[in-house]
């Protein structure tokens, strides 16, 4: 081997220029018994299981709800306006009461689920993907990329995001797509900052240095070593953002530039019910509860996921419930 150029292991044509793949040899996991699958772990945690069930129900409601109850939600009954909840006198559809036009609260909540999710999910998803990738990239490379990215984030952050939304939606038409885009844009810096901070810390770790010594390209290192570590944190952040986006959407709807009636969202329901707060509390409370329950469930599940995907923490989930509080008190490297 007189020169690395004449390295016999490198065939002519240089297959090494082909983009490196993330595929690392899959090996038989001999220890599958000690590493229970995620689903198995989930069932062991009562809170996480409950949260997952709630989210599945919310998702199903959003999917099939409107086709089942769409007509009911627009059916007005002016003889039965503002009926209090928990009474079957007017039929099952008024179990959660009725609004000022005598429409079934239950049906409206169900129909609103789809609208709410169809705004909040894409908005959170778009800002999560763009903000995270951008932040991870900026933090990994540091230098001017990081500086410019952070300045851009500062500029976006320095506008109150609602004000920006008001201006944009006032100029353009307040369609669902525009709401999604403007909410996504204004929340990108949240992910950008978090992802950058974590990525900047990770890029100085020794195992990243090790990957650099193999000649691994930055994109492959980010994919293999940075994103799997950063992702759980960002997902937790995203669940908090989910709540924020729903509330922002309700604020916009309240101002008349969000979801336009006859469409209905949880946020819009809260906003519309506000004027009847003294006389018909259920108009705001039930959609408000829907927002809170969905957010809390998403948050619990994200917190669980964060531990479940961290190999150093996962063992905590395999313990019985009674011991958990005790474990939380115990330093990890006690015996070492």
């Amino acid at each position: 081997m007189s020169s690395p150029l004449a390295n016999p292991q490198l065939p002519p044509g240089g297959r090494s220029v082909t983009p490196p793949s993330t595929e690392v040899i899959a090996l038989p996991r001999t220890l599958d018994t000690s590493k229970p699958g995620l689903f198995h772990l989930l069932l062991k945690d009562r809170f996480a299981t409950a949260a997952a069930i709630v989210l599945v129900l919310v998702g199903l409601t959003a999917l099939v709800g409107p086709t089942l109850m769409g007509d009911l939600a627009t059916q007005q009954n002016l003889s039965a306006t503002n009926r209090p909840p928990f009474s079957l006198a007017e039929g099952w559809q008024f179990i959660l009461g009725s609004d000022s036009l005598g429409r079934s609260m239950l049906a409206r909540l169900v129909v609103a689920t789809q609208t709410t999710l169809s705004v909040a999910l894409p908005a959170v998803g778009i800002s999560l993907v763009i903000g995270s990738l951008w932040g991870v990239w900026a933090g990994f490379h540091r230098g001017w990329r990081e500086t410019i990215s952070m300045r851009i984030a500062d500029v976006i952050m320095s506008f109150p995001s609602l004000l920006l939304a008001v201006v944009v939606l006032y100029v353009f038409s307040p369609s669902a797509a525009n709401i999604v885009l403007i909410l996504a844009l204004t929340r990108i810096p949240i992910y950008l900052r978090t992802a950058r901070a974590e990525s900047a810390e990770l890029q100085s770790r020794t195992f990243v240095d090790a990957a650099r010594t193999f000649g691994t390209k930055p994109a492959a290192i980010i994919r293999r070593h940075v994103i799997p570590v950063v992702l759980p944190t960002l997902l937790t952040l995203a669940t908090l953002e989910f709540c924020y986006v729903m509330l922002a959407e309700s604020s916009l709807s309240f101002l008349g530039i969000g979801i336009q009636p006859p469409d209905v969202s949880w946020g819009l329901m809260v906003a519309q019910g506000r004027q009847y707060l003294q006389t018909a509390w259920w108009l705001s409370l039930f959609p408000g509860l829907a927002i809170v329950i969905t957010t809390v469930a998403a948050n619990v599940l994200a917190a669980w996921l964060r531990i479940a995907t961290d190999p150093a923490q996962r063992w905590r989930l395999t313990l019985k419930h009674k011991r958990k509080r005790f474990i939380a008190r115990m330093p990890v490297k006690e015996v070492a």
């Binding site: 115990m330 006690e334 015996v335």
Partner: peptide, 11 residues
Amino acid sequence: EIRTPKGTLRA
């Protein structure tokens, strides 16, 4: 003795 999730150890 240390109390751990795996039982009590004699350190």
